Simulated scan of single mutants.
Amino acid sequence: MQRLLAPSIVYDPPTLLYTILTQPVKTLIQLLDLTFNLLRPKPKPGQPAIRVASHVPDGDLLVHAGDLANLGNVEEIQPQIDWLNSLPHQHKVVIAGNHDRHLDPRSRGTLPSNDRNDAVNWRGLWYLQHSSVTLNFDGGRQLSIYGAPQTPATQKDDHAFRYPQDSDAWSDTVPRDVDILVTHTPPKYHLDLPAALGCEHLLREVWKVQPALHVFGHIHAGKSDFVGMLKGGNEVIRWDDGQRTLEHAMTRPNGFFRGIIDPRSWLDVARVVYYGVGNVLWEQIWGGSSPDSTRMVLASLMYCNTGELRNLPQVVYI
């Protein structure tokens, strides 16, 4: 039964039945949180609003969150750069992903010798690699953007920008005044499948920075599991006690009976309902102010791990 219901590899989405059997209370908590978030007021974009596209649709800012190529040599990467450069957006920001081997000196040596010395011409793109840029937009708005490509390694491989899964590659690396954070890996528990394949250290760093927008990729199937599909590949995170409760609940052990009989799991449910109802009443009925928030966007266009670009592009206003 495990073999029939579980994902074939760690990056594939599990079936809904498998998710319910292994994470019954966690799934309930996520559905409750999603419901309460839909009832709360949406964050208002700045003025004038800036249209951010994660691929192809017209907008003020185009963001590419990594994996320009598959093999990762210049022969693959340069045509993608040339195509992105041809698009009409006012600014275009790009980071690398774990497949972009040529861009990481440590993994470049895994490429054939004739691919190692070629140069990449970024043309009119802003390429960010552990770096930031401040961009001016029509209408007078200015945005600070920071990009970083590193991803946790689930196993030994020769991919680019990898770090050991349990090590901290994020603390105090992101500027505190950043408006848009672009990373290849997602933060843990956010659009990273029920297996929670994102990085917990990045999550702690995002709690500190709280950017208006966080764009990431890597876990292509993060919008294809049950909860990811309901979220549509993006979600609004409000930095309050309700969010802390939700993320703490996701740390509970998996297992159907373990989840059902563990009183701490049901205490988590009660807390999520308490904060959810309280926040909706405060913001929608009493007119109270909302906490700071971040819109998180999974920008992957690839459907699961098929190699087919079947996911819809993401467009947001900030």
Rank of each mutant, 00 (worst) to 15 (best):
V133T: 07
V280K: 07
G72C: 12
V316A: 01
Q78Y: 13
Q155H: 14
G66D: 06
M302R: 09
G124P: 02
I237K: 04
K26L: 10
R176V: 14
V277L: 14
Q2F: 15
D138W: 14
T183F: 03
N279V: 03
W170N: 03
L71C: 15
N85W: 10
I260R: 10
R108P: 15
Y11N: 04
D100K: 09
V316Y: 01
V280D: 08
P291G: 05
T22S: 07
G288I: 00
W282T: 06
A119S: 11
S289G: 11
R176E: 11
Q142D: 04
P149A: 05
A49K: 11
Q284F: 03
G276I: 09
K208I: 15
Y275P: 12
K44H: 11
L39W: 15
L34N: 10
V120H: 12
S107N: 06
G232T: 03
Q30W: 13
D104F: 14
V272C: 03
A96L: 13
A49L: 07
G287S: 03
L193V: 07
L203G: 07
M250W: 06
H218T: 02
P291H: 02
G232K: 06
V94F: 06
V316K: 00
T185N: 08
Y274R: 04
H91T: 15
P152T: 10
E75L: 12
H201Y: 14
V206N: 01
E283I: 00
Q155V: 09
A221T: 07
S293F: 12
D118T: 12
L71A: 13
W239D: 00
R141P: 08
I145C: 02
F226N: 01
F256D: 04
R106L: 14
R310K: 12
P291I: 02
N70I: 12
G140H: 01
L38F: 15
L202F: 07
H201W: 09
A153C: 00
P164Q: 04
W122S: 04
Y274I: 03
H159Y: 11
G228Q: 04
H184R: 01
Y189M: 04
N234Q: 10
L312I: 08
G140A: 12
D60W: 06
S167E: 13
N37L: 09
A69E: 01
A160G: 15
H248R: 09
V52A: 00
H184C: 00
A65Q: 02
A196M: 13
P112A: 15
R3W: 12
L87C: 01
T183S: 09
G140R: 00
R141I: 10
F36C: 08
H130D: 10
W83S: 09
Q243D: 11
